[in-house]
């Protein structure tokens, strides 16, 4: 059994960022020498992101893991344009970062559903801001909700939905615009561990249901989640965060997020990556 896993282990060990996908020119996201600092409580600048570089190929699912406070959210927000870029070179789908681009969608740890809109209108919100006409956006929103198994809750309000349902609505809101790039910041963090695995499955199904390939960058604390969903995992060091390791996850697709748990290869990958992550976490 250990023999069988030997090749996988070497293959998943420490790859140079360039080997993720040769040729940065065709990359969906290319980040070069990104630094970022925030004013510390004392007033002095505190470096949060430290010389981060990576490329992400179109259609790939990439997770960024690392200890709390290491700059994952900051890096993602700079890429999304929500946070002003301070240095380095970034190309996102061929353009510099800018918030609110229609071909990019985001989802966060908290669902941010608007309580005065029902599920359909919450999902339709992203289309509404893109100027999609009412009947069409409603139809597309309803369709998306059915994909995530909320066909019976089209007109439910936030207060009537469970956490897991709310997060599925939030993911539907992100994907209903048929984005080319999906940026996720701990999208499952608010869910209990069982619901989390179920909603991860929903996300994979939603991504499969999309017409074109969707590139996804997900920030997460949860290594198991990163392995279950990703093609590539970027492991960041503790603050100031830099990319310490890059792992390619060779589990074939389509994947079953639920069945994966307990799979021996999955466990092996988890153990392998956890060794390094634990070092970073422990030294915080």
């Amino acid at each position: 059994m250990s023999l069988e896993l030997e090749p996988a282990r070497t293959e998943n060990r420490k790859m140079d960022t360039q080997t993720v996908e040769p040729g940065a020119s065709g990359a969906a996201i290319s980040v070069r020498n990104l630094f970022h600092a925030f004013p510390h409580a004392s007033g002095a600048p505190m470096r949060v992101v430290n010389d981060v570089s990576f490329d992400i190929a179109p259609g790939q699912f990439v997770s960024i893991v690392g200890p709390s406070g290491c700059g994952k959210t900051t890096a993602l927000n700079v890429i999304s344009g929500l946070e002003q870029q301070q240095s380095g070179t970034i190309s996102v789908l061929g353009k510099p970062p800018e918030a609110g681009r229609p071909e990019i969608a985001m989802a966060f740890a908290r669902d941010a559903l608007l309580p005065w809109r029902d599920a359909t209108d919450n999902v339709a919100l992203s289309l509404e801001l893109q100027g999609v006409e009412k009947a069409e956006r409603r139809a597309r929103a309803a369709e998306m909700l059915k994909v995530v198994g909320l066909g019976d809750y089209l007109h439910a309000y936030r207060g009537q939905l469970s956490q897991g349902m709310r997060q599925r609505v939030a993911l539907a809101r992100a994907l209903v615009t048929r984005p080319q790039l999906l940026l996720l910041d701990e999208p499952f963090a608010a869910l209990d561990s069982q619901t989390r695995v179920l909603v991860q499955g929903e996300l994979l199904r939603m991504l499969d249901a999309q017409e074109g390939p969707v590139t996804t960058v997900m920030v997460t604390h949860d290594l198991a989640e990163a392995i279950a969903l990703s093609d590539v995992i970027l492991l960041m060091s503790r603050r100031p965060g830099t990319i310490r390791e890059t792992y390619r996850i060779d589990i074939p697709r389509p994947r079953d997020a639920v069945a994966l748990r307990g799979n021996s290869h999955f466990n092996e990958l988890h153990e392998n990556i956890w060794q390094t992550l634990a070092e970073e976490v422990r030294e915080v």
Partner: peptide, 22 residues
């Protein structure tokens, strides 16, 4: 609401849309 303001910005809402819709 910080969450919905973040959402508004990520969805590219204009200042007016932020006011009216959020």
């Amino acid at each position: 609401d910080r969450d919905s303001m973040l959402l508004a910005r990520s969805l590219g809402a204009s200042r007016r849309e932020q006011l009216v819709k959020f």
